[in-house]
Design a protein around this nucleic acid. Structure first.
Lengths: 172, 172
DNA sequence: GCAATTTAGTTACAGATGAAACCAATTCCA
DNA sequence: TGGAATTGGTTTCATCTGTAACTAAATTGC
């Protein structure tokens, strides 16, 4: 799609100068928390994904499922959803791929036969054990410019925000 | 895809108990910064997207482009990429949709005819002016449990992390 | 000058995604 | 009981996404 040549622009559509919004500046994007978080998070998860994506043939949702199961032990798909804030379709597909690769197994839950219990296989656990330290190394590098006080502050503030987001917004 | 009935599980694939990973616990997911950021950010952007998605028929990348243009005035698509950390394909498509909806115009840059200068139309500016306060309200609600000191700390730490992510990881 | 390289942006394609529809097991409650 | 509503999970479909290949304009090196 070609840009419209200048000559065809109507006067009404003419560009606003860089100062035009200064009067009613509504939203200073670079100070807007959701925006900052989004950009930062994107950069970080892309960087971490590079660590495991090619090397282990793992997608982001797959790694998340493995990480949750590795950390907390077997649980239902629904529980994985809650822990990761991913929707159930995404989890379902990640689980299907992981099961096909024999990295986890699904067992029917005897007490509620709609549910299946997901558990890493030894293979899955081995991969989890291998990726964990790599991911931690990335985190360490990221946090390296922060002193102890900064880290504590970050931890506290994140906890507050997590709580706030949990109550303010109805969780999907 | 049905779960495999329990009886067909091999012993080797049996589930790990919740304690099995306690010995070699590699990664405490709930303390892992990239994970926490990702969950938090997902929740927030979903909440904000709800504000404008249906009401203005805007996707996330479209809103980002509008926000940058609204905030900083006309610029090239490339400049938008840098400001939003979105890749150029995404920006290109968002711009195409916005142009089709007459929310922005592209003019050929006379000084470099490969480039086009993007600028919000009056329509686009009106939408931007309407969404801004709504987005800010969501942010305010999110930040409400934080005191002044917490907000300052958050600001500082985010700046450090942004710098750290910028230098540690080669930007996409 | 002008071929070779670089840069701005679009398009094609293959895979990922979410909303909604769906199936099956469970719970609710008259 | 037994039908309606709920819940766990999968599938479908239309859309979104990123990689890579592409076009066109500008710059570089000679």
């Amino acid at each position: 799609m070609k840009p419209i040549p200048s000559a065809e622009l109507s006067a009404a559509d003419a560009a606003t100068g860089p100062t035009a919004q200064a009067a009613g500046a509504v939203l200073a994007l670079e100070r807007f928390l959701p925006y900052r978080l989004s950009v930062l998070t994107n950069r970080i998860s892309t960087a971490i994904a590079r660590v495991y994506a090619e090397r282990f043939d793992l997608t982001v949702p797959e790694w998340r499922v493995m990480a949750v199961l590795g950390r907390f032990g077997p649980m239902s798909a629904n529980a994985v959803c809650e822990r990761t804030a991913m929707d159930k379709v995404r989890v379902s597909r990640a689980v299907a791929r992981l099961a096909a690769a024999r990295r986890l197994v699904r067992r029917v839950d005897i007490r509620d036969r709609r549910r299946s219990v997901l558990a890493l296989t030894p293979t899955g656990r081995a991969i989890y054990a291998e990726i964990g330290p790599l991911a931690l190394a990335v985190e360490a590098r990221l946090l390296s410019p922060l002193g102890a006080a900064d880290r504590a502050a970050l931890d506290r503030v994140l906890a507050l925000l997590e709580a706030s987001a949990g109550t303010s917004f109805t969780k999907a």
